[in-house]
Design a binder for these strands. Structure first.
Lengths: 237, 237
DNA sequence: TCAATAGTGTCTTTTAGACATTATATG
DNA sequence: CATATAATGTCTAAAAGACACTATTGA
């Protein structure tokens, strides 16, 4: 949310400012994390906030969401899964003005090439959502909570988990995504059986991975199988 | 969507008009139907459209959604399940102005006491969504399609179906909701077993129904059991 | 009695969870 | 060889689907 001008509290004739805020989730160091930046509008200059932009005059909401990411973190559109999450319209969610915010959920794989500006960082979502966590500007903690719940739910019945990994990936990598997002540990063998028995979830590709320095059997490699909905679903334990 | 004034195509300084449109679904005559009204803004005065209102200056989005229903059809707030669906923000979705629409999904039981004005009616959703169906104003056919898919999906993992019936209800009535929304026929015995074995879905209340004029065993009566999420889910066949 | 609707029981198949076992790499 | 990671197999329990059967009403 970047209100770059001071407006009166009420817009003329029922108009509102419309902004897009993006909750970008990724898995780093085995934890689900969210991208935040230091706000640029008082009184929230010292708080973390989600990247956001005002909707352009001839710009779609999706385009604004992609722009919000691209301008902050050079995350290009095809790299990130992007879906609309929820629209926050409480009249007093912004202490200055009436701003309706259309929140988006974005997912990216762990990419070391993602270079962030100095005023942006990733925070673990369990830190952000805990009572002891840092305060976020506006209602952005609620947006993060809703984004995390959306991601957790969609891992069950969709192939969304593949948006957290780069192609090709191993089943162990995919399992670690589920474990990080859900915050549980999963049985390797049962996970593997469910994934490969769900039509269209993953497709094996040629080649195997090189084992780590401590050895281990090389892992087969997979790519997304094209299905977006899973039958049967991968239910949370 | 009721743009009651003609605005220039671009609002000042990135402002938008924000409206709420409501897709009210109910089950009538065994079919899922949606509430529509004749539009009041050219060129859509002769087309059906969803009830909608501009968001008031100090009004929340939820409040606008309830007001849109109450002003058209006297559906009072506690009667109807109401949840936000999706926000439609294509810059050219309205031929006149840039209007961002926050769509809501509402559900009500069949209520004969619901008296509609002459310019409003219920239409079966399969009619609205078929290629041969009547055109709807703006992008309202898309909104109906999204609302129906949301309802169909949520019947699986939530107790939303109870929003379509009045308390107390029989399991046959609840089953007919599932059959109408999903457009399938379900096995009576298996449906009953799944419902009563899902903790918190329904709770039996005292008394039985009177059989119809052709006889039949009196049915037990139930009320919602308090759970909003179902474990295990009621999966579509 | 029969027709109609409500409710129970049983069998088979599918899927989930626990966990033992085998396979292939490094050192 | 031991150790680490990947992949398979087996057993049991839970749930879904098909469908026969029983129960209670009105005519």
């Amino acid at each position: 949310m970047a209100a770059d001008t001071a407006y009166a509290n009420l817009w003329p004739d029922g108009l509102c400012a419309v902004a897009v805020d993006v909750a970008l989730l990724t898995v780093r160091e085995g934890r689900l994390q969210v991208l935040v930046a230091k706000g640029d509008t008082p009184p929230f200059t010292s708080l973390w906030s989600l990247p956001g932009r005002r909707v352009g005059a001839d710009e779609s909401l999706d385009a604004t969401a992609h722009r919000a990411l691209a301008e902050l973190a050079k995350v290009s559109a095809p790299d990130a899964h992007m879906e609309q999450l929820y629209t926050y319209g409480d009249p007093h969610r912004d202490p200055h003005d009436r701003i309706v915010s259309v929140a988006y959920l974005a997912l990216t794989p762990v990419t070391d090439t993602l270079h962030l500006p100095a005023h942006a960082t990733f925070l673990p979502v369990d830190t952000v959502l805990s009572d002891a966590g840092p305060a976020l500007a506006y209602d952005h903690r609620q947006i993060v909570a809703d984004a995390v719940e959306r991601a957790r739910a969609k891992l069950e019945y969709s192939s969304l988990a593949t948006a957290f990994v780069t192609e090709p990936f191993t089943l162990a990598e995919l399992r670690r995504v589920y474990e990080a997002v859900w915050g549980v540990s999963l049985d390797e063998a049962n996970f593997r059986r469910k994934v490969v028995h769900t039509p269209g979830f993953v497709v094996e590709v040629s080649g195997v991975t090189r084992p780590g320095p401590e050895g281990g059997r090389p892992a087969r490699r997979y790519k997304p199988g094209g299905a977006s909905l899973l039958h049967p679903a991968m239910l949370r334990p």
